[in-house]
Nucleic acid binder design. Structure first.
Lengths: 114, 114
DNA sequence: CCTATATTCAACACATCGGTTGATCAAGGA
DNA sequence: TCCTTGATCAACCGATGTGTTGAATATAGG
């Protein structure tokens, strides 16, 4: 299952900020509200609220309703889509490296036979 | 093996651009020069050169020297560092979901016993 | 030596990002 | 109803990102 290009843009860009990565880390331990997510950081709640909107637009989190609170929840499948994208190219590169190593090994053996 | 925070910033941000992701895809099929990487895009070589500098600063590629050319090579271990970071939090979230499912199942069973 | 090719540097324009403050909206509780 | 709390909206500011053009550097090759 693949995602569209613009969504990959948003997701990778979202992870390119240390505040948002820390939020991801916190949310992996359970849902949290804006206030709870804001607590560790020396920035305003408004700024945190916008970081959350970025994560939500990227599909990395979803939000529910609990009275006046809007808890955030991590979406593991969205994270999985990113690792899939990366792994496709990493694995292809590693395969290529192995093929190249094999070729070099053959060359060496032929040199020894001379 | 973990990387420092600023390097994660650069790497994830680097992947948050469709041009740079396309370059990663191309480099997974083999090394390429600035000119070769520029060919698919309707932008100047200078712009491509800077995209390459971003990828290099992020540690995602390295460059060698071949006469007047500067071929780029993908660094699979750098990609692996990113999937590791993501997987840590994805897997923790999935474990938590499974624990929650188990709890809900227990509640259901207790209700049936009443 | 002279020229062509590959790449990079420098300066600029414009958009987006990440933060602020102040106002606003929505839900709860005395 | 009134006040508090949680969250968001709007306007603004400085920094950064991505593109451009034009000049500079470095290597290859006649």
């Amino acid at each position: 299952m693949s995602v569209d290009d613009a969504q990959l843009d948003r997701a990778f860009t979202a992870l390119g900020d240390p505040v948002r990565r820390a939020m991801i880390a916190q949310l992996s331990r359970g849902p949290a509200t804006v206030n709870e997510l804001a607590e560790p950081f020396p920035i305003t709640k408004q700024a945190v609220s916008r970081h959350i909107q970025v994560l939500e637009a990227a599909g990395l989190i979803t939000r529910t309703r609990d009275g006046q609170r809007r808890p955030c929840h991590l979406v593991p499948s969205a994270l999985e889509a990113l690792t899939s994208w990366i792994d496709e190219y990493r694995l292809e590169t590693e395969r290529r490296f192995r093929r190249m190593d094999a070729v070099l090994k053959n060359v060496k053996e032929q040199e020894q036979e001379q």
